[in-house]
Design a protein around this nucleic acid. Structure first.
Lengths: 213, 213
DNA sequence: CTCGCGTAGTATCGAGTCGATACTATATGA
DNA sequence: TCATATAGTATCGACTCGATACTACGCGAG
């Protein structure tokens, strides 16, 4: 971590890579805080916290392997105990319903109630960001999304977390000779809709180039 | 807010602008959550919450007009009452010290104690993000920073918040004939270091192109 | 078949965030 | 000088969050 001199001829046009990384960290943190403040304001009249909006949003977009408290805890980066309380609150409010697993008595499946879906719809937009996104061109916007996806993957990898992607970017996804879809991990066939939902077993396609020589 | 049809001939190569904006929102929220989880882990052994790291980081980088509870509340997007409690905690822990304003008896100036600076240093890095940033080229990284800065400005503008920038990007900043620096708002001269600190009175240079046709 | 172990989830406690409301004290200005 | 605005604090209640301890179920080895 010592600053030190650059071992290679220093290119004057790079404003200290470490400073750039710090600036990136700061910008993402500020953006995250601003989004959080928006979420707080949006949820205030419903009596919901930012984390509740995340729970509802996730439950609206996850598949049947990923709709339990544990998956939610992994997605949010919180402990299962903490998440259990937030779920209890959402259940008391009638926004989330719980169902048993027919095959495994330990498991719980969560789903949005109609009221939960309505609440989610009221929580989503907020705007603000769209104005900024509109100011960017097509190409810039696409590049931004790609770059952010890369950063998110890097962060998830560093923290040993799961990636929670959809089938299209998962290495377990199989295309059958008859055109059907199947998950190579559970061996189960997948409907078209299944393939658009977030999965906790998701693993990225490219293992990414190896690091050291 | 009704979806409606595009008034102009719709370009088929744009995958639904609204979906792109949603995806952007989601990515930034995920990134923010991941960073927050990192901050939580980093602060855990010091007994500090993510918001404490933000307070310490801000106090290490703000100028003398911006080191009070109210400025902090604006920066964090929280109420002054909430912030007052967090400050009280940091003061109890000996990480932050408070001083009176010689001119205005209502004001309080906050500063990091040596212990606070040490704590901040332990809170900063975490890594993870750097790996992702390294994977991008110079140009991509620069474009990413620029795009994120634009988004942040848009969000701050939409929320009516302050931008908290440095003198170099502030419309009040004056360069004097003798080479000195001065703030056009307070009329006070500024040292070289002053000009590198965050200011709550900061206002962006370009009012941004008007919206209409 | 039951013992042990691992997994999924819940219960409870304490520290802390956070907003709302109400309050004190100082500045400003008509 | 009296009203109003500004800066900050105090207190309350709902909630988050982690830690720890707990229940219940599944699964495999003996």
């Amino acid at each position: 971590m010592a600053p030190g001199r650059l071992p290679r001829a220093s290119l004057p046009r790079d404003p200290a890579p470490a400073a750039e990384a710090t600036r990136l960290h700061e910008l993402l943190e500020r953006l995250g805080a601003a989004l959080r403040a928006e979420a707080r304001a949006a949820g205030a009249d419903l009596g919901l916290q930012p984390v509740h909006a995340e729970v509802l949003g996730y439950l609206g977009r996850c598949n049947r392997y990923s709709d339990g408290p544990l998956a939610l805890a992994e997605y949010l980066g919180l402990t299962k105990g903490t998440v259990s309380q937030s779920i209890a609150l959402l259940e008391r409010r009638g926004l989330v319903a719980r169902g048993d697993d027919p095959a495994d008595g330990r498991k719980v499946h969560l789903r949005l109630t109609p009221a939960g879906k309505r609440a989610l719809a009221r929580l989503v937009p907020a705007g603000g960001l769209e104005a900024g996104a509109d100011a960017l061109g097509h190409a810039e916007r696409a590049a931004l999304l790609t770059a952010l996806e890369g950063l998110l993957r890097a962060l998830q990898r560093a923290r040993g977390g799961r990636s929670f992607g959809v089938c299209g970017t998962c290495r377990h996804f199989l295309r059958e000779p008859d055109g059907g879809r199947r998950c190579g991990l559970t061996r189960e066939p997948l409907t078209e809709r299944d393939a658009t939902l977030l999965c906790r077993e998701h693993e990225g396609l490219a293992p990414a180039a190896a690091g050291g020589p």
